[in-house]
Design a protein around this nucleic acid. Structure first.
Length: 586
RNA sequence: GCCCUGGUAGCUCAGCUGGAUAGAGCAACCGCCUCCUAAGCGGUAGGUCGCAGGUUCAAAUCCUGCCCAGGGCACCA
């Protein structure tokens, strides 16, 4: 509809230009907006105001001429000029009800953007190190990423959801060592557990499984394990040096084969748990991309070779550096350490080159806000390799701070003191959790109050929206109980009977949904959907309280049932984008 | 010090590709169930849009500076 009005205006502007009322070659961006106030019609355009300057004429004069030059359209009932020169469009009744017919006709597809114009997108999100269960901090990334993917898909894009598995690197080694130490502990070896080890109960559980499958074949005396290690932090030493030495000791004693078994046992157990957890949270991936595969396939080396070929690598202090400062980064970055190990950054260069090579129009990364300093160097690497850094869009998500009432809850993966995503799901439920996570824009800190999220009260916006859906379903149950019939065809013919304010605003809200999806997807802001649904639910509840739907007048009844059916469809579609269920009864 | 993100009603937040009287929820106060689920609805009250300049017919929105708050500035991942 907005499109139609823009076309009308464009024609009018062209006609005026032809008549010489506007300077030749006048260019104007035709902006048409929905009005906030019904007194201003359904849509408003500021075109005359924008033209006033280049035409050097009064805006209201131009508005008069524009209106006169507008082509006739059955969709527009009348046009008014208001204020400083706004042109207000009032839709004809028939056109105004079009959204209801569209929603009924397209069902789950209502609001879907043009697939032909859609892009091929890769969205990578969560990608937490598989060193432990997901905690509530990851939950926000999962909820946001999941909703964004659904939103982009709803807008007509093709979306691939990917999880980057950090299955190589030092943190995983520390996990493997932690598991092995717990394993020794279970066999009765009095080993000292490092300050920097992973302490969660899940580590003990993996160790337990290791005892079952490996028996005592991986056992070494505690004295051998702990011999001549640098002091740990608790002993007045450096915890990083201590743990690195411990990892090395672990590899030496076990040998590569056995070490790999421990490592993979830890990795697979944790990763299976993460997969299961995310699936339970309604987040599903198309691909799980292994970091290790990048090293093994030689992709990391190839990436470095590309930088080398571009003349952007240099050696200094025994390390290899990438001249990222040439591409806007604050300083140059190490890609290979003096001990020969490649850095995480080097893997990431290879990973992003790989993503682009897969042919996506754009790749989207969802990262925690603490990684923002990382963005310039990755883009720098892409630029240096001749790729367009604009093809990478990094969305930063602030952390969620968990509260129980007014008490702030602390968490840290290493210490094992954290609220897991699974605990959150068990406590507040997936629906409330997902909604709470996405109702704030991602760059806002999120205060997540557990008490509020699980309260089944009016304070809880999730139930408010779900209740609107359930209420509509309930009306149809009542309809059956009363032995009445819903004739949708008749209802569609009688939509003009829906003439009160509550019905008008509900129709308007339904009509806004497709635009909302397009806008929210363009801005990559799922929270817009959450806010829209709140408003839509409000329009429905207000209507529900003001009017009886199951009236004796059959034509009116069917028209009203058509309207609430359309509303229900939009509620469902929107909730679906957010990953929240639409219950039929509450 | 440099970079990023916030600063809008008592609280939590929308609105920010400039547009017509700045919105919602919660909290407060006053009302509404012989009627399709009151997990609901209506009303009242509540704001120098952090501060100061600038651009514009028009600024919460764009630009500059400053003040607060959080985060980031590794041969860690």
């Amino acid at each position: 509809m907005k499109q139609l009005i823009q076309d009308l205006l464009r024609t009018a502007v062209a006609r005026l230009a032809e008549q010489g009322a506007l300077p030749a070659g006048t260019q104007v961006d035709i902006q048409v907006d929905r009005t906030r106030d019904k007194a201003h019609g359904d849509f408003a355009a500021n075109t005359a105001l924008m033209l006033a300057k280049p035409a050097r004429r009064k805006p209201r004069e131009i508005a008069d001429e524009l209106v006169a030059a507008l082509p006739d359209s059955t969709a527009v009932e009348r046009v008014e000029i208001a204020g400083p020169g706004f042109i207000n469009f009032f839709l004809s009744a028939d056109a105004a009800f079009q959204p209801v017919r569209d929603a009924l006709e397209h069902g789950a597809e209502y609001g879907r953007g043009d697939t032909a114009a859609g892009q091929n997108l890769l969205v990578e999100f969560v990608s937490a190190n598989p060193t432990g269960p997901l905690h509530v901090g990851h939950g926000r990334g999962a909820a946001f990423g999941g909703a964004l993917c659904n939103l982009l898909a709803a807008a007509g894009h093709q979306v691939q959801r990917e999880y980057y598995v950090n299955d190589a690197g030092r943190q995983m080694d520390i996990l493997a060592a932690s598991v092995w130490l717990r394993y020794l502990d279970k066999l009765g070896e009095a080993v000292r557990f490092p300050d920097n080890g992973y302490r969660g109960d899940y580590v003990r559980a993996i160790a337990e499984a290791l005892v079952t499958s490996e028996g005592d074949s991986l056992r070494h005396p505690a004295a051998t394990v702990g011999a001549d290690l640098p002091d740990d932090a608790e002993q007045g030493g450096d915890k990083e040096r201590h743990i690195d030495a411990l990892v090395t000791r672990c590899r030496e004693l076990l040998g590569e084969d056995a070490y790999r078994r421990v490592f993979d046992r830890a990795l697979n157990t944790v990763l299976d748990d993460i997969r299961d957890d995310l699936a339970g949270f309604g987040v599903h991936y198309d691909s799980w991309f292994s970091e290790r595969s990048l090293t093994e396939s030689g992709a990391v080396d190839q990436g470095l070779e590309r930088l080398e070929a571009a003349g952007q690598l240099y050696r200094q202090d025994g390390a290899i550096w990438f001249r990222s400062s040439d591409y806007g980064d604050e300083k140059d970055r190490v890609v290979r350490r003096d001990n020969g190990a490649i850095t995480y950054f080097a893997s990431d260069i290879a990973y992003h080159l790989n993503k682009l090579a897969r042919g996506f129009d754009q790749i989207i990364n969802i990262w925690g806000a603490d990684h923002h300093g990382y963005v310039p160097r990755v883009k720098a690497a892409l630029s240096a390799c001749g790729a367009d850094p604009e093809r990478l869009d990094v969305r930063l998500v602030q952390f969620a701070i968990l509260y129980r009432g007014s008490e702030r809850m602390q968490m840290s993966t290493r210490s094992g003191q954290f609220v897991t995503l699974r605990e959150l799901r068990d406590e507040v439920g997936t629906d409330a959790a997902r909604f709470f996570y996405v109702m704030r824009k991602p760059e806002q800190h999120l205060d997540f109050d557990l008490e509020l999220a699980k309260s089944q009260s009016a304070d809880n916006p999730v139930y408010y929206i779900q209740y609107a859906h359930a209420r509509i379903c309930s009306v149809f149950r009542q309809l059956q109980e009363k032995g009445l019939h819903y004739d949708e065809e008749q209802g569609r013919q009688q939509l003009m009977r829906l003439d009160n304010d509550h019905e008008q605003s509900l129709v308007t809200a339904i009509g806004q949904y497709p635009e909302l999806i397009a806008n929210a997807a363009r801005a990559r802001e799922p929270h817009q959907v959450a806010h829209f649904l709140r408003d839509l639910a409000n329009a429905l509840h207000t209507y529900y309280n003001a009017h009886q739907f199951l009236v004796d007048d059959e034509a009116l009844r069917n028209a009203r049932l058509c309207l609430i059916t359309a509303a229900r469809q939009v509620l469902r579609n929107g909730l679906d984008v957010l990953g929240v269920s639409a219950p039929e009864a509450m």
